[in-house]
Amino acid sequence: MIKQSIFGRISQLAKANINAMLDAAEDPQKMMDQMVRDYNDNIAEAEQAIAQTIGNLRMLEDDYREDEQAASEWGAKALAASNKAEEFRSAGKADDAAKFDNLAKVAIQRQMQAESEMKTAEPTITSQRQIVDKLKSGLNMMKEKRTELASKRDELVARAKSAHAQNQVNEAIKSVNIMDPSSEIGRFEEKVRREEARVRGAAELQASSLDAQFESLEDLGEQTEVEARLAALKAKQAGTLES
């Protein structure tokens, strides 16, 4: 009953499905911290109860040792009184012998009383020692569970933070996809390409204009030569006629 009363509540906590509780928790870290605090409180409560149980056992053991010592002392007194009675009896002092025999009987009765109390206490002491051993073992298990719980808390809190950070990254990526800057870059690139095409067009236009000018100059030169040759021909004809 003692062991059950001490560990009953803590066993429920030890068997709790932490991951399931995390699913419903708004703040997993706060929940886990509270679980560790509750566990520490239960361990402190168990330590106090165990300390009291151990104290009670030590009192029983002290009483047992006192009864054991008393039984030994009364046994020694009974023996001393009996020996004294025999001395008086050998000396022919029957009354004194009877007196010390009676003292020996009283001492034996006290010895038997102490032994009876020892015998009565033995099962209780044995039982209490077993309970204390179980309580100590249970307390050690609780402390191991607390270590596991603290480690699990650290792991789950780290995982929760990692998941939160990953979610933020995903949301950021989603936002980037919604407002894709590559489309703006594409528009700017198209604008640059149009400007480059315009420049090439202007250059080609300028080149074609120069070619036309050179071609007109060539035509003008040809026409001039034609006029010169015609003038020379006419001059030659005029000279022939005058002769």
Rank of each mutant, 00 (worst) to 15 (best):
A212R: 08
R110Q: 13
A202V: 08
E242P: 06
G92M: 00
S5H: 12
N40A: 05
N17W: 02
R110M: 10
V36A: 09
Y39E: 00
R58K: 12
E227G: 04
E148P: 06
E115D: 11
K119L: 07
F214A: 06
S151P: 07
A238D: 15
S209R: 08
L135S: 02
S82C: 05
A85L: 07
Q237H: 07
A16H: 00
L60V: 02
S116G: 06
L22M: 07
S90I: 13
L149F: 10
R58M: 11
E47H: 07
M31G: 02
K119P: 08
E218F: 04
Q69M: 03
K236M: 03
T124P: 05
T120C: 01
R9F: 10
P28S: 01
S243K: 15
G201Y: 05
E222H: 13
S127I: 09
A71W: 04
R58S: 10
Q12E: 14
E189D: 04
D133N: 10
H164T: 14
K84W: 04
A97F: 10
V106F: 09
V192H: 06
Y39Q: 09
L233P: 03
K191I: 01
S182A: 05
K99H: 03
S209P: 02
L60W: 03
D41E: 05
M59E: 09
L135W: 00
E47T: 11
V132I: 08
A150L: 12
L233I: 14
W74P: 00
A238L: 15
A78E: 04
T240G: 08
S243Y: 13
V192N: 02
S209W: 11
M142R: 05
R89G: 02
M59H: 04
S82N: 11
Q4W: 13
L205N: 07
E148Q: 03
L60E: 01
S162N: 11
E227M: 14
K234Q: 14
Q168Y: 09
D41T: 06
E227Y: 13
A228G: 06
G8N: 02
E171L: 14
L205A: 10
D180I: 07
D41R: 09
Q113N: 09
E155P: 07
D180L: 01
E171Q: 15
L79A: 04
A81D: 03
A202Y: 06
K134G: 00
I173N: 15
F188N: 01
Q130C: 06
E86A: 15
K93I: 11
N177R: 06
I2Q: 02
S209K: 07
N83E: 15
E115L: 12
K15V: 14
R9E: 08
A71L: 01
A25M: 05
R198A: 11
K99Y: 02
E204K: 15
A76Y: 11
A231G: 07
A20F: 00
A98L: 15
A235K: 09
F7S: 01
Y64M: 10
Q12L: 13
S182C: 04
L217S: 10
T147F: 13
